Computed example of a mutant assay.
Amino acid sequence: MSQALIADVSADNFQQVVIENSNQIPVLVDFWAPWCGPCKSVMPILEKLAEEYAGLFLLAKINIDDHSALADQYAVRSVPSFKLFKQGEMVAELTGGQPESAFRELLDAHIARPSDAIRAQAQQAFVSGQMDQALALLGEAAQLDPLNHKVHLDLVQMYLQTGHLDKATNLFNKLPDEAKNSTEGKPMSVILSFAEIMQTTDDIQTLQKKLADNPNDPAALYGFASILVMHREYEKAMQTLLKLFSVDRSYADGGAQKGLIKLFDMLAEQAPGLVKAYRRKLQTLLY
């Protein structure tokens, strides 16, 4: 079993430990100081991640009191400061007492996990309609890399896309919080909440007929919005939820506003302009 890679770094070994090793695996450099409270809080988090990732990245620790020249060279203005090196170059950085989730997101964006190639094969099999093969491949990936929660999130997504909401929900609920709150997990949580609504509503043809007869039918609007989300028609879903909010903002215990806020959070990074526009529309209706 691979061991955690942790090293104390000085000016004498920086080139070898950080730069040269970064050609093989990502190297996360932690600039810290003995007098720094947040540094002491973050260090156990980083060491835990180094243990968990077991050789997928190297944690390099630099005491700026002892090696101020290195801190100056990399423009460290405050501690703790974290810089990620890959292929000899700094590719990302964080500053301050960050939570564990922030470090996971930083690392996962740059680490090639042994299960990633198998995940890609599973996705290809799924797209080709070979569900059994996709499931077998994901099982293989999970055995190879049990701590890669993206494998399980892939399976949740496959269950959703094939209409197995119960299986998707049960699997998602069993995942640890770090998986649920990850970049991939948060959107999945939103999608599942709308999938549950869709399960209790009419089919799309019935809903469209109801809305043709009565465009202000709250139940039809709510159900139609959930179907739009499941089909990734996010802007149309927000339009529908805004319509519901204007018709009956209290329907389903404020379901329209809650649904919009979930979509805003989910789309904040990938479609900031769209979120800004619809957030403004909601605020106009609110006030």
Score class of each variant (00 low, 15 high):
148 N>P: 09
193 S>K: 13
126 F>G: 03
47 E>L: 06
83 K>D: 08
161 Q>P: 04
95 T>P: 01
82 F>K: 04
68 S>R: 13
57 F>C: 03
109 A>Q: 15
252 A>S: 11
237 A>R: 01
238 M>Q: 00
135 L>H: 14
269 E>D: 15
284 T>Y: 14
90 M>D: 05
41 S>I: 05
259 G>K: 04
8 D>F: 00
265 D>C: 01
250 S>L: 10
14 F>N: 06
175 L>V: 09
76 V>L: 03
120 A>W: 03
203 D>N: 14
279 R>M: 13
233 E>N: 13
251 Y>T: 05
165 L>I: 12
157 Q>V: 10
134 A>E: 08
224 F>D: 03
138 L>C: 06
141 A>Y: 02
186 K>D: 10
71 A>Q: 07
123 Q>F: 10
200 T>A: 14
57 F>Y: 11
212 A>W: 03
233 E>S: 13
54 A>E: 08
66 D>S: 07
46 L>Q: 05
38 P>E: 04
59 L>V: 09
125 A>V: 06
64 I>G: 00
8 D>G: 05
234 Y>H: 12
99 P>R: 08
223 G>F: 05
22 S>T: 07
82 F>T: 04
140 E>A: 15
242 L>F: 07
155 L>A: 07
80 P>T: 01
77 R>G: 00
170 N>Y: 08
193 S>W: 04
85 F>V: 04
224 F>P: 00
17 V>S: 02
222 Y>T: 04
33 A>K: 07
57 F>A: 01
198 M>S: 13
152 H>A: 14
98 Q>R: 14
164 H>F: 14
74 Y>T: 02
159 Y>Q: 05
172 F>D: 02
65 D>V: 00
250 S>M: 11
213 D>C: 06
248 D>H: 10
5 L>H: 08
125 A>G: 11
169 T>I: 15
125 A>C: 08
216 N>R: 12
251 Y>N: 04
248 D>L: 06
81 S>K: 04
4 A>Q: 10
40 K>S: 00
42 V>Y: 04
173 N>H: 11
138 L>D: 04
119 R>V: 11
109 A>M: 09
94 L>K: 12
78 S>K: 09
235 E>S: 09
109 A>I: 01
195 A>C: 06
283 Q>S: 14
91 V>R: 07
160 L>F: 05
179 A>F: 02
162 T>L: 11
35 W>L: 01
59 L>D: 05
270 Q>L: 09
63 N>G: 03
253 D>S: 12
61 K>M: 02
213 D>R: 07
91 V>E: 10
261 I>A: 12
277 A>W: 08
132 D>M: 10
123 Q>C: 10
287 Y>E: 12
60 A>K: 00
30 D>T: 05
217 D>P: 03
195 A>L: 01
210 K>E: 14
63 N>K: 04
171 L>E: 02
13 N>Q: 06
145 D>C: 14
146 P>V: 09
187 P>N: 05
27 V>D: 02
209 K>F: 12
134 A>F: 04
69 A>Q: 15
226 S>E: 01
64 I>F: 00
279 R>G: 15
173 N>M: 13
103 F>T: 06
80 P>R: 05
154 D>E: 12
264 F>Y: 10
128 S>N: 14
238 M>R: 00
126 F>E: 07
77 R>E: 09
44 P>Q: 09
75 A>W: 03
154 D>I: 05
105 E>F: 00
247 V>L: 07
249 R>S: 14
155 L>V: 13
25 I>W: 02
100 E>Y: 08
112 A>C: 10
43 M>W: 02
